[in-house]
Simulated assay, not measured.
Amino acid sequence: MDETAGGPALSRTWRPRAVRIVAYGMGLLVMATMIVLTVILPDDWRPQDRVLLVMLGAVIAAALHLLARPRLVAAEDNVTVVNGIRTHVLAWPEIVDIRMPVGEPWPSVDLSDGTTLAVMGIQSADGERARRDLEEFRAMLHERGEAPEPGDS
């Protein structure tokens, strides 16, 4: 906690735990399997076939990395939402609320332009940890997220 501001300290990063363990574990397993296969394959396999086998393992590991990549980063002046492929940088006042209805895999933020954005950096598969992370972010949002009213000094 940041003692001077009276709220949670910034910058804070949230990442899903269970998905990362599974994705990176599977990526290592796939790469290890492909490397072992290239070593034990019969001699009639050409070198380029062996290289392609390892490259296939690398492509699968890269796809698994996209599953493990999501995160939510709260900084003093903005929020960065990193999902599988896209990254969104939002100012605190752009975020109206964050919610994760029961049964949803991850929360979504309601934005001031009327749209919503999935936040895959917190995932319900993490159970109680996900609920704590959601409440921690919500506290930061309510502290920093409201834009000043017109005319306020």
Rank of each mutant, 00 (worst) to 15 (best):
P150Q: 08
L52P: 07
P16Q: 07
V102S: 12
A91P: 01
V36A: 14
E146K: 15
V96D: 10
A68S: 08
H88N: 12
D110I: 13
G121C: 00
R138K: 09
P70E: 03
A63W: 13
M140S: 09
L117D: 03
A5G: 06
V22I: 13
G145T: 06
R138N: 12
A118W: 08
I35A: 10
D126A: 02
V82W: 03
T80I: 09
M34P: 08
D2M: 03
E128N: 11
L56M: 13
V54L: 06
P150T: 11
P42V: 04
V96E: 11
I95R: 01
L52Y: 12
L10S: 00
T13K: 12
R17C: 10
A18F: 10
G25S: 00
A125K: 11
T13S: 10
L52I: 07
N78F: 11
E94V: 07
T33H: 06
R20Q: 11
A130M: 08
W106M: 07
M26W: 12
A147E: 12
D2Y: 05
V19T: 15
I60N: 05
R12D: 05
W106L: 05
A63V: 11
V109N: 03
P105K: 02
R69P: 05
G6R: 02
I122R: 06
P70I: 06
L56K: 06
E149C: 00
L64Q: 02
T38D: 10
P16V: 00
A130E: 04
V82L: 11
N78T: 09
T4L: 13
A130I: 06
A91K: 02
M26G: 09
R50W: 07
T80A: 01
A18P: 02
R46M: 14
P150S: 10
R50E: 08
A32L: 12
L72I: 04
N78R: 14
L141Y: 08
E146R: 15
A118I: 07
P150A: 14
A139L: 05
V39H: 04
I98T: 05
V51C: 04
A5I: 15
M100W: 07
E136I: 08
A147L: 11
V51E: 03
G7V: 13
G103H: 05
G145K: 01
L90N: 02
A125E: 14
A61T: 06
A23H: 06
E135H: 09
S11L: 09
P101V: 06
L90W: 00
V51H: 02
A139H: 09
V81I: 11
L52C: 10
G25Y: 06
V30C: 09
L117C: 02
M100P: 00
L53T: 13
E104D: 15
V22R: 09
F137V: 00
R144H: 14
T4G: 12
L117A: 07
W45D: 09
M120S: 08
P47C: 07
G7C: 13
G151K: 04
V39N: 01
P47Y: 00
D49T: 14
R99D: 13
G127P: 04
D43Y: 05
E94I: 04
I98L: 07
A62D: 12
R46K: 15
R99S: 14
G6K: 00
M26P: 05
S112V: 08
V96M: 04
